[in-house]
Design a protein around this nucleic acid. Sequence first.
DNA 1: GTACATGCAAAAAGTTTGCCGACTC
DNA 2: GAGTCGGCAAACTTTTTGCATGTAC
Lengths: 130, 130
Amino acid sequence: MQGHSLQRHLILDYLRNTGEHPTAERIAEALSRGGHAASTSNLYRNLTILVAGGQVRRLSLDDGPDRFDANLDPHYHVTCTRCNRVWDVAIQEGDRCDLALPEGFRPGVWEITVRGICAACARGPHPFES
Amino acid sequence: MQGHSLQRHLILDYLRNTGEHPTAERIAEALSRGGHAASTSNLYRNLTILVAGGQVRRLSLDDGPDRFDANLDPHYHVTCTRCNRVWDVAIQEGDRCDLALPEGFRPGVWEITVRGICAACARGPHPFES
DNA sequence: GTACATGCAAAAAGTTTGCCGACTC
DNA sequence: GAGTCGGCAAACTTTTTGCATGTAC
């Protein structure tokens, strides 16, 4: 975890400490709030470097902007189609996912996203935004 | 399956008869080849209508353009990270995917994508393109 | 002083929208 | 003739790139 510029450190810290999967825009807001505003271009450049270094994953879960995720533990994603929030859910004892892969295919990363309605949205009236 | 214009019919036919998950660009090429070229704008408009009508699914599997899929049977996706091709793999007897979802979450669509290296790419030298 | 880091502006890629004319019933 | 359909061009959003300046060691 050496060799990162300050900005890159801050991005990584933020990603590690937020439970969300922020978009680039939200990351920029967070940096700004912390008094270390970053230009969009450099933010993306740094995110690209972090992704290339394997410290961050880039997710294209929905039609909006990409989301970034510093949780490298095996997990899957649960997204609410009403409020658009995304949760990490760690793989737990008892979870299984055995699928018949094609002959000769060498699996790498498994990406599992379950779309549905979260508990909050299922209850209350639609809150319009995450 | 009524009420579709000719162009929309052709798009749907093409999507149903190709084993691939073409991008809008590839669909346009196919229509063109068939002598029914469509403007990009109307192609997207029609795809949007088909998606809204539930006859087609829109996939954002990688960083490139969206892909469209008229296979509505339960299936998951396998993509080769070298040649970028995408396959549908039908759920088979013996497949299982039981995950512990959060309390109160009402699951809808499950999206499972397995990234890896396909048999062809694992063998030969890198073919550079799908 | 070489290599990395940053910001700004411009470009690129993918997709959507506005507008207007054509076709359908 | 109201509503759908289609094309073209322009807009828009997200992300990347070029370039010139600034910083680190």
